[in-house]
Design a protein around this nucleic acid. Structure first.
Length: 907
DNA sequence: TATGTCACG
DNA sequence: GACGTACGTGACATAG
């Protein structure tokens, strides 16, 4: 007997297919082969949530079949206006069907009728058996099926998902029994069902309420006056056809009865395959977890991760054996386990190794939970391993080896032979793929869900540190990490070495940079915490003053830091004009808006000052002092090498790449970045590096000449665009020309330029036109770049770093335009990133013999050093020389250097 | 966790 | 004709 408490669910798959296809967020979903997967995701996601909510015993998922239906025989024009199904939607149908089947759900695709008819028939049968039926659909025509026992649910309608009998009346104004009459009168443009001309929902409801049914309306047609009455009378002959077309068939000849439509056990192996193809990572993980054993039996033996082979090294003889193996290996995978993700605090707990033949082992050194087995002595082990770990001959591969290098450095081991890093292999292959962490890579490339740290350590504030984790759990986790790293490397390197440019970038830029970044991070920056905290107090005082003034103006107290409350005050209470809206449609309170309002009203100006001060306080003067390492008294950032799509570094905890400089108040924060006793801060930055790269890439004669002659390039641009002599360029003209130059680097639009320089877009367009007329080489270069991007699907930097542009062929004009701007920007921003990375490598080489000079920061086009005073002269000469010498461009590459007691002075 | 805002190159 | 638009990041506060 069937369970009566759960409803019989009929899912209108075709309706969801189209709706999911048109959801903007799903439209950007593709797998790495470029196949669109958004509709698959949308439909399956809907099914999953439906099952989760109702836990049905009986259910079916129904799709339209290909080909004509009986309605086409009734009326050849039926659905004749429908454009053919887009190819990228058609492709997604088969995977959906397969996933539905693999999920164990009955799938019905019946030829000659539509999905609606199958649903109607099954609903009627179920009804007759007294079953509660739930039809999941986004199609309003289904309202005709609603009764006391049949309800509609539209999971994509967040506000009103359920349509029951009363809701039909509320929504349509007529009863479910009248829906067909209603549809016949209104007609349907999309399905090409004729109705009464000019009769919309309002009129149809009015007539049906007056005359009860279509029949009633037709009988009383001559009573309806006006043009609409004429239309009705004109439509009379065809209304019965419309009625028939709009009627969902309730007597299809089906093989199945409702009670046959039971759910089967999901086929996890099949689901794994399908989710893998679609690259639905979360669901793939779920499936792998659910069916671990079942699936691993099916796994291809070669690529399978076999945890049973892992060894745990507790005895000296095992250690000796592994030392021999590692010493003989050309390459081994290596990973450290520690007590913290923070490289300055981490204590070494163990190490794991893996060989190319698949052998892997965990060497625990400092597990200290109750009952932990005796482990080899950490110091002894490190002493023995030091030559091996430092050897350049024995190559290592790791995942984010910078971290392991930093940890080992604190045990006086300088990891050598750092040859491959899987994170960077993945990044060089495709920097656009959002994540390069091991979990994602293992899933993507090995189809393997590795043991997650949270699974063995727990999460939240009770999370264990690695030394507290039992060896039984820690060893497979750790050994697996090394094993996976090796297998990932084998796969990724195989792919990477096929591509010359990315391989060059990997070998000559990214890998050599790893030890340097580790060193720069560990060097750290000396920060005067007291100076910052004093500033915090000054800021606090001023903030209080501003607040009380603002409360007076607003007439009440409110939180100046809350955009939402501010919105209410400005645009509701004070009724200031709304200038711009946020993406969600709220009136924006962004800086540019307040700037404009500040011209006419006092409050916005105060808000602006408040915002900028509280930003400075919370982000910099309050937080930076807390980031000072108590041991070194310095701030140690983390540079991330595999985040920015263009090849730049990024910096976190704290971000040292966005320390204020543009405003005087903000800039003063840099005075807290100081040098230790007897040292100075030296900052060296590339002058106009991106514009110089543009000159080089475009080979534009005018631009090359301007740089060749050492002109002020913004002034030179102004002279050309505004047609004045170089000496006559005004400050304003130079400022606008500078905006134009930046705009070029960003893939400028007239709109963007106009906004930037505060003019209208026609004027901005004139400037752009003039610029391109004066610098035709630049325009040609921009066009070429766009073309090349469209042709190859990627753009590249001077050194062969690639940036893929999956949206360059997007049918959505805005996305495509955005991809084109990225295409313009990426070669310049990315080449500049390559150049400064090369410079770091050169400078570091020189610094090997210069213990008095330390590299302490990188800020995209600037390198910062802490230099003992006696080496200052040497550093001032050599560093800019090395920086300028890394690239041979068609224009001079220039690095400028400044020195001071703090970072502010050094500029 | 998402959103809005703002700090930098 | 309307739409919505400069490129790349990270951190913070607020609010759900």
């Amino acid at each position: 007997m069937s369970k009566q408490q759960t409803p019989f669910i009929l899912v209108d798959g075709s309706s969801y297919l189209f709706r999911a296809y048109h959801v903007p967020q799903l439209q950007r979903m593709t797998n790495s082969e470029g196949m669109m997967t958004g509709a698959v995701f949308g439909v399956i996601n809907m099914l999953k949530s439906l099952i989760k909510e109702y836990d049905p015993s009986h259910m079916a998922v129904i799709f339209d079949a290909k080909g004509k239906t009986f309605r086409n025989d009734l009326y050849p024009e039926y659905k004749a206006n429908r454009p053919p199904m887009p190819e990228d939607l058609r492709q997604q149908i088969k995977p959906i069907h397969e996933i539905v089947k693999a999920m164990g759900l009955p799938l019905l695709v019946i030829e000659g009728v539509e999905a609606d008819d199958v649903i109607g028939t099954l609903a009627k049968q179920a009804c007759a058996e007294g079953r509660e039926t739930l039809i999941s659909t986004g199609d309003k025509d289904m309202a005709q099926l609603v009764s006391q026992h049949v309800t509609l649910i539209n999971t994509m309608d967040k506000n009103n998902p359920i349509t029951d009998y009363d809701r039909v009346i509320e929504k349509f104004g007529v009863k479910p029994e009248q829906i067909i009459d209603y549809l016949a009168l209104v007609g349907d443009k999309v399905d090409n069902i004729p109705g009464v001309n000019k009769c919309g929902p309002k009129t149809a409801v009015k007539w049906l309420n007056e005359y009860g049914s279509l029949e009633g309306v037709m009988e009383n047609a001559d009573k309806v006056g006006g043009k609409i009455g004429e239309n009705l009378r004109e439509a009379l002959p065809q209304l019965p056809l419309s009625y028939e077309l709009a009627t969902i068939k309730l007597d299809c000849d089906l093989e199945y009865k409702p009670e046959d439509l039971t759910l089967n056990e999901p086929d996890l192996v099949e689901l794994k395959e399908l989710y893998g193809e679609m690259e639905f990572r979360r669901w793939l993980t779920e499936v792998l977890k659910e069916g671990g054993e079942e699936i691993s039996e099916e796994e291809d033996q070669e690529s399978a991760i076999d945890r049973s082979k892992y060894e745990t090294i507790l005895e000296q003889k095992d250690f000796d054996k592994w030392m021999e193996k590692l010493g003989k290996a050309d390459l081994f995978a290596f990973d450290t386990e520690t007590t913290s993700l923070n490289y300055m605090e981490a204590q070494l707990v163990g190490m794991s190794f893996a060989l190319e033949n698949g052998e892997a082992a965990y060497l625990p050194l400092a597990h200290s939970y109750m009952g932990a087995p005796k482990q080899l002595d950490r110091d002894e082990v490190l002493k023995t391993m030091k030559p091996l770990l430092e050897s350049d001959e024995v190559k290592k591969v790791g995942q984010n080896l910078k971290y392991d290098m930093s940890v080992l450095a604190r045990y006086d081991i300088k990891l050598g032979g750092v040859e491959y890093d899987t994170m960077l292999e993945s990044y060089c292959l495709n920097s656009v793929a959002s994540r390069h962490d091991m979990d994602s890579l293992a899933l993507k490339h090995l189809n393997h869900a590795n043991i997650k740290f949270e699974e063995i350590a727990g999460k939240g504030k009770n999370q264990l540190t690695f030394d507290q984790i039992e060896l039984e759990k820690a060893a497979p986790y750790a050994a697996e990490d090394a094993d996976i790293t090796m297998k990932l490397h084998q796969k990724l390197w195989d792919e990477l070495k096929k591509e010359e440019g990315p391989t060059q970038v990997f070998q000559h830029i990214e890998m050599p940079l790893v030890p340097i970044l580790s060193k720069v991070e560990r060097n750290g920056v000396l920060v005067d915490g007291k100076l910052l905290l004093d500033k915090s107090q000054q800021f606090e005082k001023r903030l209080k003053e501003i607040e009380s003034e603002a409360f007076d103006l607003a007439g009440k107290e409110f939180n100046l830091g809350s955009p939402k409350q501010l919105q209410a005050i400005l645009f509701e209470e004070l009724e200031l004009p709304v200038i711009k809206k946020t993406p969600k449609g709220q009136p924006s309170t962004a800086e540019e808006v307040l700037q404009e309002l500040a011209l006419d009203y006092p409050l916005p100006k105060m808000i602006l000052e408040h915002r900028s001060l509280s930003k400075l306080k919370s982000t910099y003067t309050d937080k930076l002092p807390q980031m000072i390492n108590p041991e070194t008294k310095r701030v140690h950032t983390s540079y991330h090498q595999a985040i920015a799509a263009t090849g730049r570094l990024s910096s976190t905890e704290p971000n040292l790449q966005n320390i204020p400089i543009r405003s005087a108040e903000g800039r003063s924060i840099r005075t807290a970045f100081i040098a230790s006793e007897g040292c100075k801060i030296m900052a060296a930055d590339y002058s106009q590096i991106e514009l110089r790269i543009m000159a080089h890439l475009s080979q534009d004669k005018g631009l090359l000449k301007a740089f060749e002659e050492g002109l002020d390039v913004h002034a030179a641009t102004a002279a050309e665009v505004f047609d004045v002599a170089l000496e006559e360029v005004s400050d304003n003209q130079r400022r606008d020309a500078k905006a134009i130059n930046f705009g070029l680097i960003y893939g400028m639009s007239a709109f963007g330029l106009a906004k930037q320089i505060g003019t209208d877009r026609n004027t901005a367009q004139d400037y752009i036109n003039t610029y391109f007329a004066r610098y035709p080489g630049v325009e040609a270069y921009m066009d070429n770049t766009r073309e090349k991007a469209a042709d190859k699907g990627y753009v590249e930097t001077l050194y062969g770093r690639r940036l893929y542009l999956p949206e360059i062929h997007s049918k959505n004009g805005m996305r495509r335009k955005a991809a084109e701007r990225t295409a313009i920007n990426a070669p310049m921003q990315g080449s500049a990133a390559d150049i400064i990375k090369l410079a770091m490598i050169e400078v570091d080489q020189w610094l090997q013999d210069q213990p008095g000079i330390k590299m302490i920061m990188q800020v995209h086009d600037e390198l910062v050093f802490e230099v003992e005073e006696k080496y200052l002269d040497e550093a001032k000469e050599k560093v800019p020389e090395l920086m300028a010498g890394v690239a041979e461009l068609s224009v001079p590459l220039i690095a400028e250097v400044g020195v001071g007691d703090n970072w502010e002075e050094a500029h």
